[in-house]
Amino acid sequence: MATTEVASRTETSAKEEGRYLYCVAGAGEKVNLGEIGIAGNKVYTVPHEDICAIVHNCSIEPYQSHDQELAKSWVIAHHKVVDTAWKRWGTALPLSFNTIISRDSKSNAEQNIQDWLKQKYETLKRQIARVKGKAEYGVQVFWDPKVLAQTLAATSPEFRKLEEEIKTKSRGLAHMYRQKLENLIKGEMEIKAEEWFNDFYRRIRKNADEIRVDKTKLAEQGLHMLLNLSCLVSEGNYPRLVNELDAINQLEGFSVSLTGPWPPYSFVGIA
């Protein structure tokens, strides 16, 4: 029975049943943004008062694929639509990838979107106001254990004393001493890392409107990631943030990576 029902549907009507939701913007316009969506779908707005949802028509099925290039192109397309809306209207509340609104027994997908916009109007307006005129920047701070170990070894009297002692030892003993010294330095760096984290976090926090701490990741070229932050930054704060990052980047053994401006992916909540 169910199979017959599915088979009898025309491709067009099945395709019309869902709405893929990219973002919500602070504009009440009804516009067609062109075929810029995932898989070249036509993207348009569903307005309610002075806000709108940016959508494309789709079937009620999540986008899934084992084709890496295809999946990658979808994620990039999702971002590009959000970015387009964000640049056009100045604000956009991005949705997670694969947010699809379905019809239900009472209404079709478009009505459901309008009902949702109406129901959550206050929440959405509040969130739009919160991110208005601000952009998200990704800030990652790395430290180089090789460089910082050398600095520590050179500046700590305790480590220097050990270093001197090693020179007087036989080859076998020197090796043991060397290992002991390396472990001590490693332990010391772990303690230091916490101090660096707190110091840099405070300095970056001061120059951002809002901040999110993300999980650190494995870094390349033997570096360690100390901080992985998303910063919501107003135009006024941006130059001050960059100055602070430049100062950290110039410290011996530290480097900073800055990406952006991103739409405020990390600064939207529940609606």
Binding site: V24, P94, L95, D115, Q119, Y265, V268, G269, A271
Partner: peptide, 11 residues
């Protein structure tokens, strides 16, 4: 990341 939708009418 991104906005999380919570609504009865919407799937």
């Amino acid at each position: 990341k991104g906005l999380v939708i919570q609504a009865d009418l919407i799937i």
